[in-house]
Amino acid sequence: MIRRFGEPPRNDKKYKLRPGAYAVLTRGDQMLITFQAAPDFEFQLPGGGIDPGESPLMALHREVYEETGWTIAQPVRLGAFRRFVFMPEYDLWAEKLCTIYAAHPASRLGPPTEPGHTAVWMSAPKAISVLANTGDQHFASSVLP
Rank of each mutant, 00 (worst) to 15 (best):
I100T: 01
P112G: 06
R4P: 04
G135K: 02
K126R: 13
N133S: 03
W121L: 11
S142W: 07
E7G: 02
G79S: 13
F139T: 06
A21E: 02
D136A: 11
Q137R: 13
S129W: 03
H117S: 11
D51Q: 12
R4D: 04
R18I: 11
A103D: 08
K126P: 06
Y15C: 06
D29V: 13
E95F: 02
G69W: 02
F86Y: 12
T134A: 10
F86K: 01
E7V: 05
R108D: 12
N133E: 03
A119R: 05
S55R: 03
M122H: 12
E89F: 07
Q30E: 12
M58L: 12
R27I: 06
W70P: 08
C98N: 12
H117G: 11
H61I: 10
S142T: 12
P39D: 06
M122Y: 11
Q74G: 14
R18W: 10
I33T: 15
P19H: 00
K13G: 07
H104A: 15
Y22W: 14
P56Q: 07
S129P: 01
Q30P: 06
L17V: 15
I72Y: 01
L25N: 01
A59I: 02
F84W: 05
A80G: 11
A37F: 04
V130P: 01
T34M: 12
I128T: 14
Q36I: 09
A106V: 11
D136C: 02
A103R: 11
L131M: 03
V64K: 04
T68F: 11
C98A: 15
W121M: 10
R62M: 00
G20S: 10
A106I: 06
T118A: 07
N133A: 03
E67C: 05
A59S: 10
I33Y: 05
P9Y: 02
P75C: 09
P125R: 09
N133W: 00
L109G: 12
Q137A: 10
H104T: 15
L32P: 08
S55M: 01
T26V: 11
P56W: 04
R4F: 06
A102D: 00
A94V: 00
G47N: 02
H138G: 01
I72A: 02
L57V: 15
D91C: 13
D12T: 05
L131Y: 00
R3F: 09
Q36A: 14
W70L: 13
G47P: 01
G6M: 01
A127H: 06
E42P: 00
D40Q: 08
G53F: 07
L78W: 07
F35E: 07
H138P: 03
V64D: 03
L45Q: 07
E63K: 10
G110S: 06
K13F: 09
S141Y: 07
S141N: 09
E95Y: 03
G116A: 04
G110Q: 05
P39K: 05
L109M: 15
P115W: 10
G69C: 09
E89I: 08
F41D: 08
T118R: 15
V24Q: 07
P56F: 09
